[in-house]
Computed example of a mutant assay.
Amino acid sequence: MTKDIEYVKLVSTTNKLTFDEIVSFLEDNSIPYFVENDDDLMRMLSGFSTYEKGIYVKEEDFENANELLVYFMQDNDVSDELNFD
């Protein structure tokens, strides 16, 4: 029997450059992720986009991914561009 993989939200961002840098960190450290994108729905409903993307990682990788995110935040002033809910 296979175990279902649980994904948890690492962070979401409204800045494309910040998003690209975070997923690059994850890729460089072989941490799988997927992206939740509300952009298309917002564009259909309101005619504009807010560009907010949520980045999700496997529950078992969350601690390592979160440590990478902390290092990323220490090197970059992006606290107002990230959402941790």
Rank of each mutant, 00 (worst) to 15 (best):
32 P>L: 05
7 Y>F: 15
22 I>A: 06
43 R>A: 14
76 N>K: 08
13 T>L: 07
34 F>V: 06
23 V>N: 12
51 Y>P: 04
15 N>K: 12
10 L>Q: 05
68 L>A: 10
23 V>Q: 08
83 N>E: 01
66 N>L: 10
71 Y>F: 11
47 G>E: 11
79 S>H: 08
36 E>Y: 06
69 L>C: 11
7 Y>E: 03
18 T>S: 13
8 V>K: 14
69 L>W: 04
57 V>R: 12
46 S>D: 07
73 M>K: 13
74 Q>W: 00
69 L>P: 13
58 K>S: 05
63 E>A: 14
75 D>I: 05
78 V>N: 11
26 L>T: 07
48 F>H: 15
14 T>H: 05
12 S>G: 03
61 D>H: 12
23 V>F: 02
8 V>Y: 01
21 E>F: 12
60 E>S: 15
68 L>P: 09
32 P>Q: 10
25 F>N: 13
70 V>G: 03
80 D>L: 11
40 D>H: 11
81 E>Q: 14
37 N>F: 01
82 L>H: 02
72 F>A: 01
37 N>T: 04
57 V>W: 02
26 L>H: 08
17 L>W: 03
60 E>A: 12
72 F>E: 02
80 D>T: 05
44 M>H: 11
35 V>F: 02
59 E>C: 04
74 Q>E: 12
70 V>H: 08
78 V>P: 12
41 L>G: 03
40 D>I: 05
32 P>V: 06
78 V>R: 12
61 D>K: 10
59 E>G: 07
39 D>N: 14
80 D>F: 04
13 T>C: 08
25 F>P: 00
60 E>T: 13
70 V>N: 10
